[in-house]
Design a protein around this nucleic acid. Structure first.
Lengths: 331, 331
DNA sequence: ATGCCTATTGAAAACGATTAGAAAAAATGA
DNA sequence: TCATTTTTTCTAATCGTTTTCAATAGGCAT
């Protein structure tokens, strides 16, 4: 039924060993053999079964990127970075989505245990960090875009605390004193860190923390809208709002805009992620840009290096972020 | 080094065959054996090597979704649909991106030839349809969200011609006579079909086709902006614009808005895809909604059915789309 | 012709699972 | 008890590769 290396060998009048050698460009094989095998391969339309190959070699040359969903658009650049790094070393990148279900995430990591992939990159881990850390001792795992709350695993991200601090400080520098924060109820390490940075900036500026100015929602634009509504109901309204994602900021801006507030004057907005839409609407949104492509490229490179290395690199790399200043902060 | 089924057998004092039977919940195995094996598995932390299993069984229980990039946000629902259909039948869904490079798409299809996955769904095929058709005779391939220009392969999509017709007719029904079309230079079958529908609607309404009212660009919002700029420079300006994607429409609306046109009155806009942002900004965008989740679910179900079937189903299924009417068409 | 070296080759043993078929053990019936 | 059936177990073959190791062929120098 299926054409195997044996059929090729028979057709080419050589042994399977020779066919294998030709297929893998081994040097010690005669020109005649090369031709005969290539001709047979061509004639039979043979293509090698990777299950056999991978089993024998005990490697698949594939790495798995585990994401929550494909919805977050900035994953795209991260994945591009990973691909570039992987392709140049002969690896393929496969993607799988957890749908933000820790159990399913674990199931996907099973592809590592069962040797269906050589390594995995978690782009938004939901399972607890102790488990991940434990697994990383046996398997090639890295974390990207996030960090675990404990050290001990290869991790490529930005300094989210610092980014939160920078954005908030920028608003403070603009003379703002009542700065709202919109973040998520379900805490990823990055949002925890961004909130920490927000608080530190306030503290350093001598601005008292006001819990009424922190809104906990989800990642949707609706959250931004509702948060903004809450904030603007307050007696002591905020004069600036920092959100941990652009989507949220945009939702908030829509509300403020529709209710007669002059964005960039009455109230400033700072987002996070620099998504496509952040500069599509007037006023354009100031935001934190993180080096997505570079993070992806870096994590893949280091993960592959780890797979070959005696002693794996388990450092955390924080790549530089930058502030993009636009009309929403009066720039 | 690695724990194999042999180690488990030794630990449990049974043969590898028995271990395998326990692992696969075969009925003809004693309770004692089950316990002994489970204990050994637990103790050794064994997890089966799928390369061995898959090689022997000649199936991987994995199907591959091939997309251009993760950027197009509506892929997410399609993938969700595919996952739901697949999981319920014990299949995993892996995703891979072609970066819109036909060569790379071919490389990914190689996973099919090399038996690394059991089937593949193309969500935006770039390689020519003859090749795909040819391959589909030997391997389990389906197409989703698009159709090939030739019949003969399992395909789940919407009727794009009809959708283009419906959107354009709606604008005509609103009394519009000069309707612009923004589409893409690089033609996917869906954009070709949408344009056909646009033309048919004009024709049926007795409105002459005017090539100055068709703009060919890419999938970006910039294209929308530039197209709108071109259109509004014309002596005989359009009073409505249909774009083959929401992103483009939004870009166009931004331009019109900034130049003093009253959207929904002076000029109507109709988009395509019903993306999240289409209803985030005022005026909200009227658009064509396609059943993403259902398309994904359907294509996966039918593909899996095909893999078991004697005679594969090679029909094209067109699922119903719907028009979402909002302020941009004065609704 | 002989020996020695090198370049190619092939036979067979992996890799880690599943599974047919044989064998052993247990259960059943008389 | 023993023959017969049923249940459970094991041995060994198999899936399609790669790779070790031994064997062969050919070239060259003596």
């Amino acid at each position: 039924m299926n054409i195997t290396i044996k059929d090729v060998a028979r057709e080419a009048n050589v042994s399977v060993a020779t066919v294998s050698r030709v297929l893998n460009n081994k040097s010690n094989v005669s020109d005649e053999a090369v031709h005969a095998v290539n001709r047979a391969v061509e004639k039979l339309g043979y293509s090698p079964n990777f299950l056999g190959r991978d089993l024998r070699k005990s490697e698949t040359k594939r790495i798995l990127a585990i994401i929550g969903s494909t919805e977050e658009s900035f994953y795209n650049d991260v994945l591009r970075g990973m691909q570039d790094a992987c392709f140049s070393q002969g690896y393929d990148v496969l993607i799988a989505t957890t749908r933000n279900d820790p159990e399913h995430e674990m199931h996907l990591l099973g592809m590592l245990f069962s040797k269906a992939v050589d390594g995995a990159v978690l782009l938004a881990p939901k399972i607890d960090s102790k488990t991940i850390l434990e697994l990383s001792k046996k398997y090639s795992i890295a974390v990207c875009l996030e960090r675990l709350d404990t050290e001990g695993i290869l991790c490529v991200t930005i300094n989210n605390e610092r980014a939160g601090y920078d954005a908030t400080s920028y608003l403070i520098g603009k003379g703002r004193k009542r700065i709202g924060l919109i973040t998520t109820k379900i805490r990823s390490q990055s949002s925890v860190d961004r909130e920490k940075g927000y608080r530190r900036a306030l503290e350093e500026a001598g601005i008292p923390f006001d819990e009424r100015l922190v809104y906990y929602g989800d990642y949707s634009s609706d959250t931004g809208t509702r948060a903004c509504e809450e904030f603007l109901k307050l007696e002591n309204k905020p004069d600036a709002i920092f959100s941990i994602s652009d989507i949220i900021s945009l939702g908030a801006m829509v509300y403020a805009n529709n209710h007669g507030y002059k964005i960039g004057k009455d109230i400033l907005f700072f987002g996070f992620d620099n998504i496509l839409f952040s500069h599509m609407f007037i006023p354009r949104l100031s935001t934190v840009d993180q080096p997505c492509y570079l993070q992806g490229k870096t994590v893949a490179e280091k993960l592959i290096a780890n797979m070959k290395a005696e002693e794996p690199d388990i450092s955390t790399y924080m790549l530089p972020h930058s502030l993009i200043l636009r009309e929403s902060t009066g720039d």
